[in-house]
Amino acid sequence: MDYQMVPSICPYCGVGCGVLLEVIDGKLAGTLPLKTHPNNEGKLCIKGWNLHEHVVSDNRLLFPLVKEEGRFREVAWDEAIEISAKRLKAIIEEFGPDSVGVLTSAKMTNEANYLIQKFSRAAIGTNNVDHCARL
């Protein structure tokens, strides 16, 4: 029997409410408001209260896929990464780095965003990087 309350941030709107993720035996079991968090002071909206549900949803896709002849196939990470790198490199080689666009995410962490723009600018070599702040 293992039980943890992990403080984290609600992934929905821009308020950034403090939440406690309830983990029982390694499984995400619930969400509680972090009562002492300055942003929400122990309150949450309906989305925050249910945030664990989107994580444990049966709809989650939990492995990389590659499309072949119009159909997805489950593959290992190495293969997925390799195929993607090869395809991107070929396109960059043929059409130049500005033929690639990158959309980063307003739902991902700062760290991931930082890496994605770094990836675009340094690995691909393009400033074609944007996200859906406007949408």
Binding site: D2, Y3, Q4, M5, P7, L20, L34, T36, H37
Partner: peptide, 28 residues
């Protein structure tokens, strides 16, 4: 934890952790 009182389980395996048990003003 980091200045925030959080609900916590104390067990035989981590019995020394019991020293960190507090009453907490925040109630859960």
């Amino acid at each position: 934890v980091d200045g925030h009182p959080l609900p916590c389980f104390f067990t035989r395996e981590n019995i020394d952790d019991v020293d960190n048990l507090v009453e907490s003003k925040a109630r859960y």
